[in-house]
Design a protein around this nucleic acid. Structure first.
Lengths: 107, 107
DNA sequence: TCGGTAATTAAGTAATAGCTTACACATACG
DNA sequence: CGTATGTGTAAGCTATTACTTAATTACCGA
């Protein structure tokens, strides 16, 4: 849990997760989307993988990264339940799900 | 959002939130629950307040802190929806709610 | 086998976070 | 008033984090 929140504290790492939410990507494809060096991205990926938020699979010379959505959802939802007075946040989420339109969130 | 995740990356700050989930507390009461100095705790409280996760109210010489549960729930639930393939995590949460027993989570 | 590409590891540096002590400020109360 | 108590601010130190470049490892294809 500590590792998850630590991983999520970085904007770069949250952006990586957002990319992986749409499609699996290789390390190089991810790095190409940022202006920082490839080793820097590689380190971010390590942090995410150690937190269990992404998984990697080597295919030839490429390493494909994918989102572990369960880990993220379970950790965050679990934490919300733990800290918040259980009933309300779930209601809100249900409402959000029902309306089906994601409210504008800025990072 | 950045401030929220940054705030949550610290174990001390998450522990403060956990305390405030059960009851409002003064700065001193919070500080007494940690082994670090009072100024250190005060700084953590500032971070949490800047993130909108706690609110403070001065009463006489005391400052009472309270959890802003909505901010936490909305931010985290919103983020989960943003990153995860919408349907599954909600199902899981519904199941957890139905079973009513919080699954063992360790920090 | 050799050169090229993908990715990570290593080493070093600069910025940042978190802590401490000392101080300042406000309120309470004799 | 003047002293004590609760809280927050300031300054400084240390440890960690995030980045860089250079070197290394692994794989591919001619």
């Amino acid at each position: 849990m500590q590792r998850v929140f630590e991983a999520l504290s970085s904007p770069v790492r949250r952006k990586i997760l957002a990319y992986l939410a749409h499609a699996d990507l290789t390390a190089g494809e991810i790095a190409a989307r940022f202006e920082i060096s490839k080793p820097a991205v590689s380190q971010h990926l390590s942090v995410l993988e150690n937190a269990g938020l992404v998984a990697s699979e080597k295919k030839g010379q490429f390493v494909h990264y994918s989102l572990v959505a369960d880990a993220l959802a379970n950790t965050l939802n679990g934490y919300v339940q733990e800290v918040c007075p259980v009933s309300r946040p779930l209601k809100k989420e249900s409402a959000a799900l029902a309306s089906k339109s994601a409210p504008p969130t800025s990072d």
